[in-house]
Simulated assay, not measured.
Amino acid sequence: MHIAQSSPSPRDPDTEVADVLALLCAQIGETVENGLAARRYALTGDRRALAGTLL
């Protein structure tokens, strides 16, 4: 007899990143918007990603 194992449902990597980023921002007292801007800057090196932030 074979017992089927249920596999976890696939998650969107961007959703996982957003969840972790939201927790980090909450811990350091930063807004999620500024956290996302910092992430965009880190990934691209484009300083325009930081426009409108206090970073």
Rank of each mutant, 00 (worst) to 15 (best):
G52K: 00
E33V: 14
G52Q: 02
P10D: 08
A51R: 01
P13A: 00
D14H: 14
I3F: 13
A22G: 10
L55S: 12
A49L: 04
G29F: 10
A26I: 05
I3N: 07
A18T: 11
V17S: 14
Q5D: 06
G29A: 05
V20D: 15
R47M: 01
A51E: 06
L50D: 07
E33I: 08
G29I: 05
L50N: 08
A26S: 12
A37E: 10
A22D: 14
E33L: 12
I28K: 11
D12P: 07
L43N: 08
T53E: 05
G35K: 01
V20G: 11
L54R: 15
A49P: 05
A22P: 09
L50F: 08
S9Y: 03
L54N: 15
D12Y: 05
T31V: 11
L50P: 03
M1P: 13
V32R: 15
T15R: 13
G45L: 00
L36R: 07
Y41E: 06
L21M: 07
L24S: 12
A49S: 09
V17I: 14
I3L: 09
L55K: 11
P13Y: 05
L36D: 09
D46R: 02
G45I: 02
P13Q: 04
L36Q: 07
L23R: 14
Q27H: 14
